[in-house]
Every structure is written in structure tokens, then in C-alpha cells.
Design a protein around this nucleic acid. Structure first.
Lengths: 153, 153
DNA sequence: TATTGTTATACTCTATAACTATA
DNA sequence: TATAGTTATAGAGTATAACAATA
């Protein structure tokens, strides 16, 4: 009865639970930092991708982000309605659109990158560069392994 | 144009994105391993909690799992309808219920723990014990820091 | 036949407000 | 006033099927 929420020591060793809670904590801080811009993680990823790959098609962007095309459509529509991106017909392929940042969108990017820097500072301040590299490397091994055939025993 | 999905090197350094993808990979494997039992991660956590804290109330379980009470209600209802748990009125507190595993639920637990062992083997086989400890410690620092007041600068 | 954009849909997780009965 | 269980609801993320226009 005196037990508190910290006595579930077994579950605190579960990798999946620790991953989920860490993800939630990081995304919550992202939300606080980006709330003033009404930009969610997925929107920031798409904007950053368009900034570094201007003129890509929606299908190409969905490949790069590794999300279904149908979901990219929703994100691009939202960004277009907010006048942060524009879609032009691609003269070389009349099925496709060319996606670009509007001047408004381009002007917003430096503010978003600054918010990201504050977000990183908040969530990573207590990590050494070595710890961060090690953490990222382990996380990448986890999700990259998942797409592979059964690893050799 | 020759670029593939692996050329988004900048985003591959984002902590939040790596956390989300690693979480997704681990939970996808969990889903494959537990599909035969139709048990999702949240259901497994609740069953494990009831096993280690038999007779707790729903409110107590939601505290231990750190999820809203309203969500615990849905999980307990599902488990009760599947005859894996039972809820009795608490004679000492007529607002509360006592939650227990049914014989069926208790009989299922060893199979679930075996599935968890296979799941862990699959997702952690390539990690050394030291790497795993370090990873868990870093993840816990991330979600524990999030609940704290602003750390001293 | 395959690709692009799109609509519709569905499922899960997470979170909050508000009600009731009990304390 | 506070707690336990509950209902209803809403938002976001994720995923698939299917269609029209185009290649």
C-alpha cells in the first residue's frame, strides 16, 4: 500500500516500454517547442525534406520519409492550405506534381530550425556527444535490423 | 534522381525520429510474436501487473502503469470479456474492485512470458549485455528527465 | 501493366471532460 | 471534497484498398 508508481521494477527493464516512454517524452517536448508554429513532427519532417529536396513529387517525398503515399497527401494538403508549400503540375510527367516551399514557408524554416535546436538542447543537454552517438547507433541498429531477413544465428 | 530512401542523412540523426522508428520496429515484432494470443503490448503489461500485484484496484493499476484511469477501464473490460481476469467488489471499499487473474488467465501467463523471451531474443540478440544496460539507462534518463522541473543550467 | 495522386476507411494509442456512487 | 469506475469523445499516427488519370 505504501508502494508507489516506481515499484514496477520488472517493466522498467522492458526495452519496448522504455522506448515508447522515451519517444513520448521527446515528442512531448517537441510539441511544446513547436506549439507556437502549430507544427507537428510529421509536418516538420515534410517541410525539412522539401527544403532539402525542392521540386520532388509527392510520391518521392513519401519514399524518402518512408510513409504511405496516402498519408503524404494529407500532410501536403495541410501545408498547402496553410500557404507553406505549393504544388505545380510537372510538365515532364502529367501525373506528378512538383512540390516547393512558398516564400512564406521558406521564411518559416529558420524559425523551425531554431526551435529544433532548442528542443535538442532540452532533450540532449545531459548526454555527452559519445553517449548520443552510441544511442543513435543502437536505435538505428534496432530499426534497420527489423527490415532485414532473419539475421544469421 | 538516383537517390534512394537512404539519402535523408540529416533526419537519420534526429533523436525523436530514431526513437519512433526503433519503437515501431520493436512493437511490430511484439505483435508478430503475440499475434497467436491476440495480446497487444498494453494488455500484456496489464496482465503482468495483475500477476505481480494481485487484488489491486483498477485505479491502482492505472497508477502503476501510468496511464489514465479511463484507458485502464477499456483494457480491463476487454480482459474480463475474454475471461482472463475477473473483478470482484472490494468489501473494504464499495467504490473499488479487486482485480485478479482467472485460472484461464493464470494458465496463459507462462505462454506469454515465453513469447516475451522469444521477442527479446529477436530484438536484443545482437546487443551485448553492456550495450543493453547502457541503452536502457539512457532511455530511462530521457523519460525521467521529462517529468522533472527544468534542470539547473 | 505500373505509377501518381487521391478518397475513404479503419485501427490503435493517448488524453480529457464529465457523470455516478461512494468515501 | 476527494476517490473509483465509467462513458463519451477527440486527436494523432499508421495502414490498406480502390479508383482515375497518366505513363
Amino acid at each position: 500500500m505504501i508502494a508507489n508508481a516506481a515499484d514496477n521494477s520488472v517493466m522498467d527493464d522492458w526495452l519496448g516500454r522504455n522506448l515508447r516512454r522515451a519517444t513520448s517524452a521527446v515528442f512531448n517536448n517537441f510539441g511544446e517547442e513547436f506549439a507556437q508554429f502549430k507544427i507537428r513532427p510529421a509536418l516538420f519532417a515534410v517541410l525539412t525534406l522539401i527544403e532539402s529536396h525542392p521540386g520532388s513529387s509527392g510520391a518521392r517525398l513519401s519514399e524518402l520519409l518512408e510513409i504511405p503515399r496516402a498519408n503524404m497527401v494529407l500532410l501536403l494538403r495541410e501545408l498547402e492550405q496553410r500557404h507553406l508549400i505549393e504544388r505545380e503540375p510537372d510538365p515532364a510527367n502529367r501525373r506528378a506534381h512538383i512540390v516547393l516551399l512558398t516564400p512564406q514557408g521558406a521564411a518559416l524554416m529558420p524559425k523551425l530550425h531554431a526551435a529544433q535546436a532548442r528542443h535538442n538542447e532540452h532533450t540532449e543537454r545531459w548526454m555527452t556527444p559519445e553517449e548520443r552517438r552510441f544511442l543513435i547507433a543502437l536505435l538505428q541498429r534496432i530499426w534497420r535490423r527489423a527490415g532485414e531477413i532473419e539475421p544469421g544465428l
